[in-house]
Design a protein around this nucleic acid. Structure first.
Length: 94
DNA sequence: ACTTCGGCGTAAA
DNA sequence: TTTTACGCCGAAG
């Protein structure tokens, strides 16, 4: 069991609070954590996240609406796919 | 639309 | 211990 920085845990926690089909920006998450402007630090936290495919970090996107990157499986492609899948699920249509 | 610089936190040197 | 480099960024030019 490794000890992770408090900042990382905050990020993962907030990230886990994001409802399905919804998306948040890194800056929004950073402000929620308590460090507005640390969008990059937030990205770093998600990048080092040991729960990579487990934590809904794929629901976090850039302020531009882009995916930026994705250190977990599949990369940006998988991220985009999950996002669309959860969004469609929200609509109720397949 | 694209490029450049700035700012935050962590990991590594 | 201090400094440098890095990362799923963001804003400005």
């Amino acid at each position: 069991m490794k000890k992770y920085p408090l900042f990382y845990q905050k990020v993962w926690k907030e990230c886990a609070k994001i409802p399905s089909g919804e998306t948040r920006t890194y800056g929004w998450l950073a402000s929620k954590i308590g460090v507005p402007g640390a969008a990059r630090a937030v990205g770093t936290a998600l990048a080092k996240n040991p729960f990579a495919p487990q934590i809904p970090c794929h629901r976090v996107i850039r302020s531009d609406g882009g995916m930026g990157g994705y250190s977990a499986s599949g990369g940006v492609a998988a991220k985009r796919r999950m996002l669309e899948r959860e969004a469609s699920k929200n609509h109720g249509t397949s």
